[in-house]
Write a protein that binds this DNA or RNA. Structure first.
Lengths: 338, 338
DNA sequence: AATATTTGCTAAAACGATTTAGTTAAATTA
DNA sequence: TAATTTAACTAAATCGTTTTAGCAAATATT
């Protein structure tokens, strides 16, 4: 029982496949196909459950109805939550998602972009690592719709959805200062990415407003969690005067909590805590951790809306937009005054 | 600057596209193409960076080099971790992943399977919801490689990777009993899925071994977390005699912890805890939560290995295998004797 | 020297759709 | 009545590959 093709349909009904194609693509009226024939074809197609071969269709039309989604790491709750929401909206609009994790690895990302291009994805959603500017510009030059999120690239001008990183950390650091903390450290992953730089800068700005000295630990990312825990432990052991720590991402924050547990540090009496990102781990820690919550639904929503717009309007002259969303600051016991 | 096709290459070198195709597919020797010509073609292809159009290739060969991955919910850490590992292995073997979340919704899953079939995925990896037997059997009848995981389907005989659910909960419940707990509840999602039924049965078996009475709460799953917290809170408030609770999944466990925090229940003195699945939330809770850790790497590894095997060997006569993996039981303070 | 084999390459048919450029017959208009 | 328009449909080209079947020249065999 081989799969039916449009030719089989046409033969069986004694019409040309052209006619069938027109009918199936809703161009019957425009092409003045007779009502009665239209119905006959529709009926038979429904009856046998014929579905056009999407590969052949893509080959001919150049559209694949696929969106390429590149996140840093799909197993990171921030990205998986966004992926989930994007997935829903995409499927509802007839698009499939091919995804991958970049690991912030430029070379890997280059390969993946090639793979996506190869696969003729119609549009790209990318949380870009550094050093990928040229590849993305090349996509743009070919007229490909690209939406960046979570971070942007200095020399790439395309649509981008971000949050107000600098204000978020500035504001949260101010909060720590208002609570009476004076020796506030910032622990983050070593990264030149715009969002990470902005977060660091927000922290620095707040401290310099008050004339306090910054203390920054930048960890080299590693898949092996022990290699993240160790430097944090060292840092905390060395800097005994610290009275508060700001974690730059959910991952750093989670690792930080593990270290704090291991070292038996009391929160917030020994050390106050604030973390970027918010999720169950922070809500359920004792005491619950003050966190900057990214508006995940809004991010996903804006990303997919912008992309679908670009996909639907063929007008290339729409100027690219940069959307900056606000975060929520969830103050919890981990940063209360002492 | 249009994209080059194999015809352009052929024309430019004054050879036939057949020849180019043979060379590019490593069939030069077999087809006795002259060494010198092979080199000339290779060189030019590299020079201009020609990449064959994968759509056309797929159309002709019937292979899409794509694997369809259907999980329950990509934003669940268990599934996203597995997805991540599968993704890595798949990409390394030249396969792309199209994924989707089924939400355990049979109808949605049917549609998604159709979509995948439509897209000509070469193989399927599915954590199947109930009621999808016919659709999967229909895939199998068409000769499609399908690997199930996390759960199986009663009347579907295909490869499947699972864990020993029944023993895991039996063993963990025994542990609670040994610690002196007598009124042990099991809180889970209402589900007829094999893994959930097995987990429940393991719990029941252990209790009946000791002659204790089971107390089971089955919650109807809902996206809205409040509708999960409420029944748990009610259940705990009503059953004051409980001295231990067993959570059937990471999601239930996390919700359970929230309720326990909200109600100010002391762990383990008021209530001992054990949860299925293990992740940061459980490790970082105070006290840390005893948990059954699924061997995520092993699951992913087995799944993808089995699937790649089926994809590479055209032999249809390989009998399907059912792989059962062991779990780790991580005993922590939440279930210590009192 | 005649025949068979090997070497090196290619024309053309497929895969399954969309789309361009017609064709034919009927209806309208001049 | 002849010329034009319209209605209803279709043949064939196209997208970019792979693959089957086969050709011509060179070499080997009898």
């Amino acid at each position: 029982m081989k799969k039916l093709s449009i030719v089989d349909i046409a033969n069986h009904l004694n019409v040309s496949k052209t006619t069938v194609s027109f009918i199936l693509n809703g161009r019957a009226q425009e092409k003045r196909i007779g009502k009665e024939l239209v119905e006959r074809v529709q009926k038979f197609v429904d009856e046998v459950g014929y579905k056009p071969n999407s590969l052949a269709k893509s080959l001919r039309t150049g559209k694949s109805n696929t969106i390429g989604l590149m996140v840093e790491d799909i197993s990171n709750p921030f990205f998986s939550a966004i992926a989930r929401l994007i997935e829903d909206r995409a499927y509802k609009n007839g698009y499939k998602i091919i995804y991958c994790s970049t690991d912030n690895d430029t070379l890997k990302t280059k390969e993946l972009i090639n793979m996506f291009r190869d696969r003729h994805v119609d549009g790209y959603i990318i949380a870009p690592p550094e050093g990928i500017e040229d590849d993305i510009n090349s996509l743009l030059k070919q007229g490909m719709p690209v939406v960046l999120f979570d971070r942007h690239l200095p020399n790439v001008s395309t649509d981008c959805v971000e949050i107000d990183n600098l204000f978020s950390t500035y504001n949260a650091t101010k909060h720590l200062i208002q609570q009476g903390y004076k020796n506030i450290a910032f622990i983050t992953f070593a990264s030149g990415q715009t969002q990470m730089q902005a977060r660091l800068q927000g922290y620095r700005n707040a401290l310099s407003d008050s004339g306090y000295k910054p203390a920054v630990l930048e960890i080299v990312f590693n898949q092996n969690e022990d290699l993240i825990l160790a430097p944090i432990a060292n840092f905390l052991k060395k800097n005994k005067k610290l009275d508060a720590v700001f974690f730059g991402t959910n991952h750093v924050g989670t690792c930080g909590l593990k270290v704090i547990n291991n070292l038996g540090i009391k929160v917030p009496s020994d050390l106050a805590l604030v973390s970027f990102d918010d999720y169950d781990v922070f809500k359920l820690f004792s005491p619950p951790v003050t966190a900057i919550a990214q508006p995940i639904e809004a991010i996903a929503d804006n990303v997919i809306t912008v992309l679908l717009n670009k996909l639907n309007t063929s007008s290339r002259h729409i100027s690219s937009q940069s959307i900056i969303l606000k975060t929520d600051f969830n103050i919890r016991a981990s940063s209360k005054h002492r």
